[in-house]
């Protein structure tokens, strides 16, 4: 009995040790991550001005003269929107087909495996892949190529998230819908309504990922000081703007990189927050 009691003390002690270890790691990490946002804000706000977001880089911008990064801002929005829409067009039919017609597990399993592997592939590989195509087709870096490549990056994220959302629909809903005599196509409609909030979250997630991704557009979309006016012309993007501005030797230009990074972070965080809020709101009509 005494032994048991002593052991109980030791067990409680072990629990306390690990508890503090876990608290410490969480606290440390949250602190560091908070610091990242803090550092970016602190350094970025100084260089942030209306001019930054509303004008194009003018001559000598990279030496510290007038101008802004409107080109990159607009370019990034084009790229991310285009890629998300394109990926959506591919992902939605695939996922919904998988869940309505191909109800036997085998195909679904292998598609899921493929998506997981695709998700794991570094975006620079997609970039190189896109570039390989461009070279063999003889095209130069362009908005179109950037969108296509970025769509590849975003597709697995979108499809996998969506797949998970649809997976969550209760079996009962499916059964009761089909029991009412609905065709599979009509069931797909019900499914769509049920997973709408999840779909929106997936889209926003993909958009956030797309707008922040630099490695894939590095080769394929190029960089330019002008606004994109055609699908076949190069286009600038925010992450690359940060990267290039930071590469200059002048402190005042580097400060612009901080500002650009702040804008980028703000967009991503904004989108992500919006996704969370909308999920909470739209989720009201969803059967759980």
């Amino acid at each position: 009995m005494k032994q048991v009691r002593r052991r109980r003390v030791r067990r409680a002690l072990e629990e306390q040790c690990f508890l503090w270890l876990m608290r410490l790691s969480l606290l440390g990490a949250v602190g560091v991550l908070g610091m990242i946002v803090g550092v970016i804000c602190w350094r970025g706000v100084g260089a942030l001005s209306w001019e930054m977001v509303s004008s194009l880089p003018e001559g000598g911008f990279y030496l510290g003269r007038e101008g802004g990064i409107l080109n990159a801002l607009v370019g990034s929005l084009y790229l991310a929107c285009g890629a998300t829409v394109l990926a959506l067009c591919l992902a939605v039919p695939v996922v919904f087909y998988l869940h309505t017609y191909a109800s036997k597990g085998r195909l679904r399993h292998s598609v899921r495996l493929a998506l997981d592997i695709l998700w794991g592939i570094p975006s620079i590989v997609y970039g190189a892949f896109g570039f390989a195509w461009m070279v063999s087709l003889g095209v130069r870096a362009s908005l179109l190529a950037g969108i296509l490549t970025l769509a590849l990056v975003v597709l697995p994220i979108l499809a996998r998230t969506l797949d998970e959302v649809v997976e969550m629909t209760p079996v009962l809903l499916r059964e009761s819908t089909l029991a009412l005599g609905a065709t599979r196509l009509e069931w797909m409609g019900v499914l769509l309504r049920q997973s709408l909030p999840g779909l929106l979250t997936a889209i926003l997630l993909a958009f956030g990922r797309g707008i922040g991704d630099a490695a894939s557009v590095l080769f394929t979309a190029g960089y330019t000081d002008n606004l994109p006016d055609s699908l076949l012309r190069p286009v600038a993007s925010l992450p690359l703007a940060v990267f290039f501005l930071l590469g200059t030797p002048f402190p005042e230009v580097q400060a612009r990189a901080y500002a650009a990074a702040l804008i980028l972070t703000a967009i991503v965080l904004g989108v992500s927050t919006f996704a969370h809020l909308s999920l909470a709101r739209l989720g009201r009509y969803v059967i759980r």
Partner: peptide, 18 residues
């Protein structure tokens, strides 16, 4: 979730700054 979404350039920038 927000932090998962922060672009890698931003992490890189933080790396250089800090």
């Amino acid at each position: 979730d927000l932090l998962v979404g922060i672009p890698s350039v931003v992490y890189g920038l933080w790396g250089i700054l800090f």
